[in-house]
């Protein structure tokens, strides 16, 4: 009798423990999947491929080769019930290999660095990204709409500034699938681009013609 009671207690304890771990795992994965979208206003129609091409300094397809790090910009202090709290906007530095230059001419022989607005928040709890934008994944191919900054670095920020592409390997070299519908829209947008009159900078990765 005493033995069966002991077994019963052990089974019950095991079930409680398993349940506790299941809840914990579920909670952790839900934090990892939490995405917070930044809302903004824009100088162009960010849903128009012609405007995206005309406003950007560089449009190209590239394979993401690595993540170089996270940077936290635009810090502000905000009061909360529990005291002052620092809020920042995350940016992610990616190393990429340009596959094809569509607008402008960036080096294709070596990896270059591009900064993307968005990334893991400073407290590590959520992923922050602009509405209708994606954070690139290593090994995948994307179209980048990039802006040269005054220091020659490259920045890609805002809705539709990074678009995932289907790719194929041709003669051992990665190529963008020509039939990819996004790629076609990007090319068409570039061919009919609406050029913006604004002060522009030059990328340190640009190749002189």
């Amino acid at each position: 009798m005493r033995k069966s009671l002991l077994i019963g207690v052990m089974v019950l304890a095991s079930m409680i423990l398993i349940g506790f771990f299941l809840v914990l795992i579920n909670k952790t994965s839900s934090i990892e999947n939490q995405i917070s979208y930044i809302e903004g206003s824009y100088s162009i129609n960010v849903d128009d491929f012609r405007a995206l091409a005309g406003d950007a300094d560089y449009v190209f397809s590239a394979e993401v080769t690595g993540i170089e790090g996270y940077i936290y910009k635009n810090p502000v202090m905000i009061e909360t019930v529990t005291g002052a709290k620092r809020i920042t906007t995350p940016y992610t530095d990616y190393s990429i290999r340009v596959i094809e230059n569509i607008k402008g001419k960036l080096q294709t022989e070596d990896d270059i660095i591009i900064q993307k607005a968005g990334g893991i928040s400073e407290d590590g709890k959520i992923t922050v990204i602009f509405e209708r934008d994606v954070l690139p994944e290593i090994g995948k191919t994307y179209i980048f709409y990039a802006y040269a900054q005054e220091d020659g670095s490259l920045l890609s920020a805002g809705p539709n500034s990074c678009l995932k592409l289907a790719n194929e390997v041709n003669n051992g070299k990665k190529k963008v699938k020509a039939a990819d519908s996004t790629y076609k829209k990007v090319l068409d947008g570039y061919n009919h681009q609406i050029e913006t009159d604004r002060p522009r900078s030059k990328s340190k990765y640009e190749i002189d013609e």
């Binding site: 635009n74 502000v76 905000i78 906007t89 607005a117 920045l155 500034s161």
Partner: peptide
């Protein structure tokens, strides 16, 4: 009162005029 949103400025060459983050900031 408890602050709900902090406003600030920044400088970046791109098409973003301003943005709002639900963490409590307008830039």
């Amino acid at each position: 009162t408890i602050e709900d949103v902090a406003i600030s400025d920044y400088y970046e060459q791109n098409s973003v005029s301003g943005y709002t983050d639900k963490a409590g900031m307008i830039c």
